[in-house]
């Protein structure tokens, strides 16, 4: 619901006013007929359940009265830690993804061979969707206790990866997240590089600008919205992730999505109101990053025309 900032709400309000005005006009009303099944679907399986979830987070289970106790409960260490872990892993893997993804994207963009370029873009396309259980499992095979790389490091460099590092811990999960964050960033940033016209670089050069000046005054400002879009999308992508963490760390690392999942499965005895409060706070965090993402992509489109 929090996605409904004024900017997104504005067109809805206009549309609603038109709907009200057109009530007396049959042909105008007919316009909305074709929309009906789809709107009904969204109301029934998204908006109304989410509204009830928000309402439920403010309702006391026994008295049925209004309460903010569920939100006050968020100050307990276990919940604070879940939020901190979720934000930390999403922020960290988003930043790593943006920096390395931009470097890789640039290297792909500048590569002379078209066929290799396309192959790398296709690889990014497939691997960014290679997540969840299969991904978690692949990382256990290479970096688990008896993993291939674990042994390789021990045999050839006499370096013991464990117990300093563990694939079942925060750093292990972060590495697995980077695996699907990197290619996603590559896919976001390549169109932005394509958008920087050769002519701009040439005209900057002809006016005496050096490379640093070109990137400082032209390149980065043009890439800026794409970088911001990437950062927010990657953040949201990791924050909402569940399957990879479920397979890899399960209960060894407390994340918001995992906690909510445990509550649904009934594995932890908590007031359901607390789970709903966690969900509502997460919607707020997700909404914020998606809203910034939307604004950033509108700015990206301005350059891609």
């Amino acid at each position: 619901m929090l996605l409904l900032t004024f900017e997104t709400c504005h067109p809805i309000i206009i549309l609603m006013m038109e709907m009200i005005k057109s009530k007396h006009n049959k042909s105008e009303l007919k316009k909305w007929l074709g929309f009906f099944p789809f709107l009904l679907f969204c109301l029934a399986f998204e908006f109304i359940p989410i509204l009830f979830l928000i309402r439920g987070s403010f309702i006391d289970k026994t008295t049925q009265g209004f309460t903010i106790a569920h939100y006050q409960a968020m100050s307990r260490t276990v919940y604070i830690n879940s939020f901190l872990n979720s934000i930390k892993i999403s922020g960290l893997t988003a930043i790593i993804g943006v920096i390395l993804g931009t470097l890789i994207g640039y290297a792909i963009y500048r590569w002379p061979s078209e066929s290799l370029k396309n192959a790398l873009i296709s690889l990014s396309d497939v691997t960014t969707n290679f997540s969840g259980a299969p991904l978690a499992f692949s990382f256990i095979i290479i970096l688990g206790m008896n993993g291939v790389i674990t042994q390789f490091l021990f045999k050839y460099f006499n370096y013991e990866l464990y117990p300093g590092f563990s694939i079942y811990s925060f750093s292990g999960l972060a590495l697995a997240y980077v695996y699907f964050q990197l290619p996603l960033m590559v896919l976001i940033i390549i169109p932005a590089f394509v958008g920087i016209r050769k002519e701009w670089q040439e005209s900057a050069e002809s006016m005496g600008a050096n490379n640093f000046q070109f990137w400082r005054f032209i390149g980065i400002p043009i890439l800026g919205p794409s970088l911001l879009a990437g950062l927010t999308l990657l953040f949201a992508n990791a924050y909402g992730a569940y399957a990879t963490a479920f397979t890899l760390v399960e209960s060894q690392l407390s994340l918001v999505t995992l906690q909510i999942g445990f509550m649904i499965a009934g594995e932890v005895r908590h007031d359901p109101g607390v789970g709903m409060a966690m969900a509502v706070l997460s919607l707020f965090i997700m909404g914020l990053s998606i809203a910034i993402y939307q604004i950033a992509t509108t700015r990206v489109r301005r350059w891609s025309k």
Binding site: E46, P49, L53, I264, M276
Partner: peptide, 22 residues
């Protein structure tokens, strides 16, 4: 806007909302 919502609501939360409501 619906697409943004669809992106913005993680699967876990959609599942929770559907279970609570239905």
């Amino acid at each position: 806007i619906m697409s943004a919502f669809s992106f913005g609501i993680p699967g876990v939360i959609l599942a929770l909302a559907l279970i609570r409501f239905y």
